[in-house]
Design a protein around this nucleic acid. Structure first.
Lengths: 209, 209
DNA sequence: AGCAGAAGTCAACAAGCGTTGGCATATCGT
DNA sequence: ACGATATGCCAACGCTTGTTGACTTCTGCT
């Protein structure tokens, strides 16, 4: 790589770094690039989000992007770092897990559009899709494993949960289907919670009532 | 546009045309282009699917693609034409609508990958997203309106149905989350049917059992 | 047979892309 | 104050893209 040119290319997190090392003067630029990159990748996807456009948003030269992040692919990898930050739900009574999970995801999405962005990009970019699979496997699947009765069922139940939650993210934030956009978060939570609850806890098969 | 160059640019459907006009000698080529385009758009999305690659698949010159379809955008518009072909479900008893709809969608997806393709592309291409919204509004929403009790609730219920069904298509065919890929269609139908059934018919709010 | 037009090939274009290296400027330790 | 080095801009590269126009080959009609 071109690692040798950079003073410390493998450096840690940039934004508001609690300085393990002394903060560099260029940190604000790095952060500006990353912020612009996140926005562009979110709005346009990997291919249409050009380095030149990202640089223009950050008001610096395109070459700086490469110098600080090595390549477009590496920039994307950094921009697409994403932690679901799933809270500890071990105190939640089992019959409220669905509602807790759904409402958590909503508050998360409304404040941080990285996941919809990742979703948008993952549809066409293989490494972004791989990233989503990673997040699913290491974060969601692990959390779900702590919620279900039979651990062997965890991956399948996690996948079902993901299908509904990502489906909402897709139709609401990416495709923007009008009725899905218009529905209030509260109503949506009311509708979705029983679904997630069933995927997490119910015995397989159609539920009778 | 360049319409004047073409003998009959605004022509009708190409593949196995039940000749309203006399079939042209080039119809097989047109069909080959369209088939290759569908595959490429499906596999790579709009941006990465290049005209050159499509032409190579169809074993013709890239310029032919333009001559027959005008531009990449128009080619995509033609390739992304998609009819859900929702069957008449008026004979299905109301408490089986969910199961009927879910299993229909599965058989549809397994035989024709156009919808996952459209989904992949819609994430980054605005006109593809618009196409999905159209399909939703004119086809799914209309069908759902015939299934629900209160017509005023139809768009909202249709959106919920779409969120779950498209979520499955996304996780299974586009993102390819391993547990979602591995699950058998029969099991998946068993899990999803109650969800769709509830979105179609149930009173809002958490279901008690 | 000869011709009109359709079908297809070829080479090139302008534009945009990611990326690179060279050069100017600013900052900081000494 | 000075040199080292980090930071930034500029111009250019090699490449790929969609698209175009001129040219050749094939086909079917009279």
């Amino acid at each position: 790589m071109t690692e040798g040119v950079l003073p410390e290319a493998g450096g840690s997190d940039a934004e508001s770094a609690a300085g393990v090392h002394r903060p560099r003067r260029s940190d604000v630029t790095r952060a500006a690039i990353l912020r612009a990159a996140r926005e562009r990748f979110a709005a346009d996807g990997y291919d249409r989000a050009t380095i030149r456009a990202i640089a223009a948003d950050a008001r610096i030269d395109p070459s700086m992007v490469i110098r600080y992040y090595g390549s477009k692919e590496e920039l994307f990898a950094t921009a697409a770092e994403f932690d679901l930050r799933l809270p500890d739900l071990s105190d939640v009574p089992p019959d409220r897990l669905g509602a807790a999970l759904v409402s958590y995801f909503f508050t998360r999405w409304e404040e941080d559009s990285t996941l919809p962005a990742l979703l948008r990009t993952a549809s066409t970019n293989p490494s972004a899709a791989e990233r989503v699979r990673e997040i699913f496997a290491t974060q969601l699947s692990a959390a779900v494993a702590r919620m279900v009765a039979d651990p062997a069922e965890a991956p399948r139940r996690a996948a079902l949960v993901a299908s509904q939650l990502l489906g909402v993210a897709l139709t609401r934030y990416v495709l923007r289907l009008p009725p899905m956009v218009d529905i209030s978060p509260a109503d949506l939570i009311t509708w979705l919670s029983p679904t997630i609850q069933r995927y997490l806890r119910a015995a397989p098969g159609p539920d009778r009532r």
